[in-house]
Simulated scan of single mutants.
Amino acid sequence: MRKVDHDSRREEVASVASRLIAEKGLEALTTRALAKELGCSIGVLSHYFNSKEEIVMAAFKWADQRIDQRMQNAIAELDEISLDYFIPMITAGLPLDEASDREWRVRFNLYHYCLTKGGKGLKEQIEKISQFRVLMDEFIRTLQKKGEVRRDIDPELITKMAFDMVMGAAQNLLMVPMPERQSHAAYLFAIVEKLRPVKTPTITAVPA
């Protein structure tokens, strides 16, 4: 029971820390500000985390995992692999509501933090992105074999396009008013539709 309570409390701290980062930026995340938000002392925080850096990384992982889980949940109920996977996956992976907006703001702070600090955090992000690209490439190749995606386009090229397109769109959407984001992202789905093979119409012979 103690283990569950300890993990639950760590997750709560990570959640509140992520909110501070999303709303005010990484520089606003101090142990004093965090303790105030949680209604506890700085000493209590040290019981769950050994340093501020640990809290920062926990907040980033909290947001990162929620984005990943959101995307997995979006396709979990689909019966078979098809190009239609992309639609709910892209929708779930973009900051189109308040919850995902917060998660993406934290994620972009994570990228900036890792790029400036380097070390283990940067290595983990590079490995994660690499693994995601491999999975995406395999997914595209499977769709091409099934005739769901055009075969005249290199699957590696589609993978790079899809990944960079969603990442770039997510960043841009953070600067668009929330009510306008859905329509602003519509072009992404139009691009996905361009990946469908062009079906040759069947010509029915006319009886003589």
Rank of each mutant, 00 (worst) to 15 (best):
N109Y: 02
L96T: 15
V166H: 02
K52L: 06
R150C: 08
T204E: 11
L110E: 14
E80D: 15
E12F: 09
K117C: 04
S8N: 05
P95H: 01
P155I: 03
R151K: 15
A170F: 04
M175F: 12
L26A: 02
R66V: 00
D64R: 08
P207H: 11
L122I: 00
M167L: 09
P197A: 14
R105E: 09
L174K: 05
A17F: 00
E98Q: 11
A208M: 08
L122W: 06
L78E: 07
A76T: 01
M1Y: 07
P201Q: 08
T204M: 06
E103N: 13
F163K: 03
P179D: 05
S41N: 06
L188R: 07
P201V: 15
I81N: 05
I42N: 14
M175L: 10
I129Q: 07
R70F: 11
C40R: 03
M161C: 10
E12Q: 14
R107Q: 08
D154W: 01
K24H: 15
M89L: 12
I191D: 10
T30H: 00
A162W: 06
V4D: 10
K145I: 04
I158L: 13
L115H: 15
L122H: 07
V44S: 14
S8M: 03
A35S: 08
E53D: 15
A14W: 02
M1Q: 15
P88E: 07
A63L: 05
G43F: 07
G93C: 04
L20H: 01
M136G: 04
V16E: 04
S100E: 10
R32S: 05
H112E: 13
I191K: 09
A169S: 15
A58D: 06
L110S: 10
G118S: 05
T202E: 09
K194L: 15
G43I: 01
P207N: 07
P155D: 02
K123G: 00
K199L: 15
S100M: 14
I203E: 09
C114D: 10
A170D: 03
I126D: 11
R181D: 14
E193A: 12
E37P: 06
G43N: 04
V56I: 15
M175R: 13
V56N: 00
R181K: 11
K194G: 14
Q144H: 03
F163V: 11
Q182F: 01
I140M: 09
E54Y: 01
G168E: 09
E77L: 07
I140Y: 00
Q144C: 08
Q69L: 14
R151A: 12
R70W: 09
Y111I: 14
E53Y: 01
L20C: 02
Q69D: 13
E156I: 08
S130D: 15
W62H: 10
E12H: 10
A170E: 03
W104N: 05
R141I: 08
A74Q: 03
M136P: 03
Y187H: 12
V192F: 08
M175S: 11
P197Y: 05
F49K: 02
G121S: 12
E148T: 01
T204A: 09
A92C: 09
L143Q: 07
T142I: 08
K199I: 09
A185K: 02
V166Y: 03
N109V: 00
I153R: 11
K24C: 04
M71Y: 00
D154K: 06
K194I: 02
V149H: 04
D101A: 08
I158D: 02
T116G: 03
E193S: 09
I126L: 11
